[in-house]
Design a protein around this nucleic acid. Structure first.
Lengths: 262, 262
DNA sequence: CGCGAGCTTGAGGCGATTCAACTGTCGTGG
DNA sequence: CCACGACAGTTGAATCGCCTCAAGCTCGCG
């Protein structure tokens, strides 16, 4: 049996983040929600630093993050690192629309991570598995009606990636940092892991640096500046956004628009 | 009737780029190729600077670039600009897996552009139109079997976007520029628009700057350096890669891996 | 207690930006 | 025909943002 408690959440409710995440994209039928709750059966936990998905790995088992943080990144030959995205509970891993990853990217756990890997044996896959086209030419097999959710999720992720490009290409360290904090706050709110303007961000400054395209030292100084100006509070992994409006102006932040779920 | 010749290519062969682009991703049946050739009927040309697709535009007519160059970009409130991707002939526009663009990005023509917008009235769409799920819950309507091509194309594009993130986040101006030139050469080769190591790149240094996340001045100096070191030749919009191997080492460039089409 | 990982701080340097001017090449109109 | 402006490219000089190097610091933990 896996650890009974991860990140202070009992296993029974751990799948809640997935439900909340998907519900934000499109309403779930009771049957669908129940399906997702059932994911709690097949939980795997991995240690920080472990690889959740690597480049060439063809099998590529799609799964959901239940707790913990991870990142998708690439390593340059000389050791430089660039993080593409930060993965939080509720996020999907390996649901590439296309089986072959093509892009040499790796997903690594940043903290202890709990994963739910659905049993794809029945119904083959949620979105179109390794040979969706072979068995169902011209279509995707989606017995449970999650295809729309996953499509929208992919779209949301692309939006986040575009935001990231803007950050790296055209924003200063100060703006980038503010933008990231707002984005994380928004995403954590979606899954109910941000109370008011506070949230927990279990990332070292090195990880932030590799995400923001900055040096560790400069991330440190930038965070200090944000604190000094009383825009945020940070101690340990605890973050408080003191002036969300002003931060949003600084970073030109606008949250992704979601379908009219309200 | 639209202009008979665009970019020196006769209309009859203009759809060839689309065929070559898709064939590189997955073989096309004769019927499919014929379908694509038929796109030549519905050609639209737009002037440089025109918007091909904008943010809120819900209808969003998916189409293929037949000739000319365009870019996908975002504008910051203070005028800064970041280009996400450069679009060349054969590329698809607006085939977002999900109808709602979500991301505030705009597609703009950089040169005169010829577009083919398929007649989606029959068969609804190639990939899943505005309400694919409504009419075909849990599946996508794809009467002609292009779904796989479009999926792989989307995957390839994501790979390019990841490359872009690495460029912007962790590479120097020198490396970025080399990387971009190699990427463009590879993409143009796919559609047969690069002879040997030469190709035409109708981009101003301002566009390059907004793509590479640099200032115009620095792009200029960086290109000069690449020329001075005899790694490339450039005059006007004509580019020659003199030392592809060395450029690839500098930029840590590795082309996307394509399915075993050979 | 001592160690290591992460955070903090200072000093110096380089890469890239900004501002500003100048060049060359167009197409346009007097 | 040449004057003209518009535009792209080029160059120099000064500045700044961010990086690197190198220490110290703090804390949790064996």
């Amino acid at each position: 049996m896996m650890s009974a408690r991860v990140n202070g959440t009992s296993p029974a409710s751990m799948t809640g983040v997935v439900v909340r995440r998907l519900r934000a994209l499109k309403p779930l039928t009771p049957a669908q929600a129940q399906r997702l709750e059932a994911l709690g059966d097949r939980i795997e936990t991995v240690a920080p630093g472990a690889t959740l998905q690597s480049d060439g790995a063809v099998p590529m088992r799609p799964s959901f993050m239940l707790s913990g943080w991870a990142c998708r990144m690439r390593l340059l030959p000389d050791g430089r690192r660039q993080i593409f995205s930060l993965l939080i509970p509720g996020d999907a891993i390996g649901f590439c629309v296309e089986p072959s990853p093509l892009s040499s990217a790796v997903v690594v756990a940043l903290t202890k991570v709990a994963l739910a890997t659905p049993d794809w044996s029945k119904g083959e896959s949620l979105m179109g598995g390794p040979d969706a086209s072979a068995s169902h030419p011209g279509g995707v097999h989606d017995p449970w009606g999650f295809a729309d959710h996953m499509r929208r999720s992919a779209c949301l992720e692309e939006g986040l990636l575009l935001d990231h490009v803007v950050r790296l290409g055209r924003q200063t360290a100060y703006e980038r940092t503010a933008h990231l904090l707002l984005e994380l706050h928004w995403r954590l709110s979606l899954i109910g892991e941000a109370v008011d303007r506070r949230f927990v961000m279990p990332l070292t400054q090195e990880i932030l640096a590799d995400f923001l395209g900055l040096s560790i030292v400069h991330v440190n100084r930038t965070l200090q500046q944000l604190r000094r100006e009383r825009l945020i509070e940070m101690s340990g992994s605890h973050v408080v956004l003191l002036e969300t409006a002003q931060l949003a102006v600084i970073a030109d932040y606008q949250p992704q628009v979601l379908p009219q779920t309200s």
